[in-house]
Amino acid sequence: MKNSFDEKILDEAKDWIKANQKVVLATVIQTWGSSPRQVGSRMIVNEKGDFSGSVSGGCVESAVVSECLSLIKDNKPCKKIEFKVSNESAWEVGLACGGEIAVYIEQIH
């Protein structure tokens, strides 16, 4: 459904920042084919790798967490990541559902 005024992820981001944590916001910005979470879905990640919210049905969350951690480590402001259909010949992350998504990650500073 459309963005909800009751959706709590951004409030949680604020709480984490108040607790002196570094926070990266991940947002689904584009989808192709069947993807479990719609454009605008969100997840937050802190420097310890704790996360809340979701950008897929559990398919790419761990990869997004590690990308977010690199963003903090390299002190970069933002990055766009694309996830495609999983490739069986490699142990890479992919969407089991066969969809493709683009996720935008950005530090809140």
């Binding site: 916001l25 950005e106 809140i108 500073h109």
Partner: peptide, 9 residues
């Protein structure tokens, strides 16, 4: 995103 923008949101 700036903290200020987050607070405004």
């Amino acid at each position: 995103m700036k903290i200020k923008t987050l607070e405004e949101i």
